[in-house]
Amino acid sequence: MKNILRVALALTVVCVVAACALSVVHVVTKEKIAEEAKKELKEALGVVFPKAETFTPLDLAAFGTLPESKDIQFLEAYEAQSGGERQGLVFKVASTGYGGPIVLLVGVDTKEGKITGLKVLEHQETPGLGSNVAEAGFLSQFLGKSLESPFRVGEDVQAVSGATISSRAVARACAKVAEIVRGEGR
């Protein structure tokens, strides 16, 4: 009996001390973690739409029925503003590549009808091949492209060598975003 009490006491003391220590660390780091996530999103949005200063989240439902298929999913939308005026839109899209979904941001200038920038946020493509679609070398060819372009690999988009499927996934994301923005303008 005495032994059980000793064991229980030892376990309780250790667990309580550990939980207290963790709570302290959690409280200290919580805000910083949230802040970092916000900062990261803001930086990413800034990369795809350098001209805008502020980004406000939009409700995806505002764009009507979105193309929902197993190849592409719309996750989030932001309105890019400069001087309080709407300059364009940024969409967060998941497009299925070779190893899984490629999550990327696509920025669109709605006034000029152009792609302003792309940034791959997450992907599971093969390192060294498909992973190159996240590099500037591939993504820069989309900059300034008109929304009327076909966005088809082999026609107006050059695929990363050895990674056609990953390249197609990025092109598909642009094509769908362009389709939605064109639909909205009318």
């Binding site: 550990a18 963790l22 660390v25 959690h26 780091t29």
Partner: peptide, 17 residues
């Protein structure tokens, strides 16, 4: 418990900084 406490601390601190 001891090991997981320190692991969680590292995890949280790395996430934050």
């Amino acid at each position: 418990v001891v090991i997981s406490t320190f692991t969680t601390i590292v995890d949280l601190v790395m996430k934050a900084y």
